Amino acid sequence: MTFQRARNEEQRGIRRRAILDTAAAMLSEMPVADLSLNELSRRVGLAKSNVLRYFESREAVLLVLLDDFLGTWLAALAQELEAGIDPHAALEERADLLARILSQSLAAQKVMCDLFGAQGGVLEHNVSVEVVKAHKRSSLAKVADMSELLRRHVPELGERAQFFCLLSLLSAGALAAYAPPPASLVAAYAEEPALGALHMEPCDALHSAFAATLLGLLPRK
C-alpha cells in the first residue's frame, strides 16, 4: 500500500485510519511489545517520518487504537447483556449472569486486553501531555458509558458500578499477559501436572474475580 501526499482533511483522515487498521492487524499477529514503528510504517506504505505526522509516536497510535477497541467492544457488550440477562430475575441471578457474560466477553477480546495490560507501563509513556489528556477524556467517557450499561441490568450497583468497571478492565489487562501460556509452560504442566494446580483459564479466572467482587459490592439482604 502506498499513498500520495494528503492534501485535505479527508485524505489525512484516510491516512490515520489506514495506520490504525494496519496496527490492529499487526496486533492480531504479535504482542504489543513486538509492534515497532518501523514495521508499521513499512506495512502501511509510508515513511516513518510521514507516520509521525499523524501520530507522534508508536504509543500514541496504540492509545487511539485502545479507545477504538473499547468503544466497539462496549457496543457488542450491550447486545450480549441485553440478550443474556432477564430484567425480572432475582439480584443474585442477574449478578451471576453479569459476571459470566462480562468474563466471556472480555476473554474474547485478546488484543484489547493486551493493550489494557500495557497501558500504564508502556502506552502512557513517550506521549505528550495533550495526547494523554485526550486519551483520558475518552477513557473516562467510555467507563461512564460502561457503568451506565451495567446499572441498566444490575441497578443495585449504584455508584459502585464505576469501581467495578475499572477493576474489571484492569483485571482483564493483567490476565492477558498469561494467555496463551508459552510452550515451555504447557510442556511443564504436561510432564508434571501438579505444577498446574493453580492454573486457571482467563475466562474462568475473570468470572471468579467478578463474582467475588460483585458479592462484596452489592447490598445484602
Results as ranks from 00 to 15, higher is better:
144 A>H: 14
108 A>P: 02
97 L>V: 06
104 Q>F: 06
179 A>K: 06
128 S>E: 05
161 A>F: 08
167 L>S: 14
133 K>F: 08
99 A>L: 03
77 L>N: 03
90 A>N: 04
81 L>H: 04
171 S>E: 11
179 A>I: 03
103 S>K: 02
172 A>E: 03
144 A>E: 15
140 L>K: 12
171 S>C: 07
116 F>I: 05
178 Y>A: 07
152 R>L: 11
117 G>C: 08
174 A>Q: 10
111 V>I: 14
163 F>I: 12
176 A>Q: 11
81 L>R: 02
149 L>Q: 06
157 L>C: 05
136 K>P: 00
125 H>Q: 14
135 H>M: 01
87 P>F: 03
119 Q>A: 09
79 Q>D: 12
185 L>C: 04
83 A>C: 02
132 V>H: 15
146 M>D: 02
121 G>A: 15
156 E>A: 08
77 L>V: 07
151 R>Q: 13
149 L>M: 11
114 D>H: 12
116 F>W: 13
160 R>F: 10
133 K>S: 14
162 Q>R: 14
109 Q>P: 00
98 L>Q: 03
117 G>A: 05
156 E>C: 00
166 L>S: 04
81 L>I: 06
153 H>T: 00
76 A>S: 09
92 E>K: 07
145 D>R: 13
83 A>Y: 08
78 A>L: 06
95 A>K: 05
108 A>I: 08
148 E>D: 09
184 S>L: 12
147 S>P: 04
108 A>K: 14
89 A>L: 01
181 P>Q: 09
114 D>P: 02
181 P>E: 07
172 A>D: 05
115 L>I: 08
91 L>P: 06
142 K>V: 01
120 G>E: 15
124 E>N: 07
92 E>H: 09
139 S>K: 12
144 A>Y: 11
127 V>E: 00
178 Y>L: 15
80 E>W: 01
103 S>F: 07
172 A>H: 04
115 L>M: 06
140 L>T: 11
141 A>F: 07
139 S>T: 13
73 W>R: 07
138 S>K: 13
76 A>Q: 11
97 L>N: 13
91 L>D: 00
89 A>M: 03
109 Q>Y: 03
83 A>H: 08
150 L>D: 01
149 L>N: 00
94 R>W: 07
106 L>M: 13
116 F>G: 00
96 D>E: 14
88 H>G: 08
109 Q>E: 15
167 L>G: 01
130 E>F: 12
112 M>S: 01
148 E>A: 12
130 E>Y: 09
157 L>F: 06
79 Q>L: 14
155 P>E: 01
93 E>W: 03
119 Q>G: 00
85 I>N: 00
151 R>M: 12
111 V>D: 09
88 H>T: 15
169 L>M: 14
118 A>Y: 06
165 C>I: 06
152 R>Q: 11
129 V>W: 13
112 M>G: 11
114 D>I: 01
83 A>P: 01
95 A>C: 02
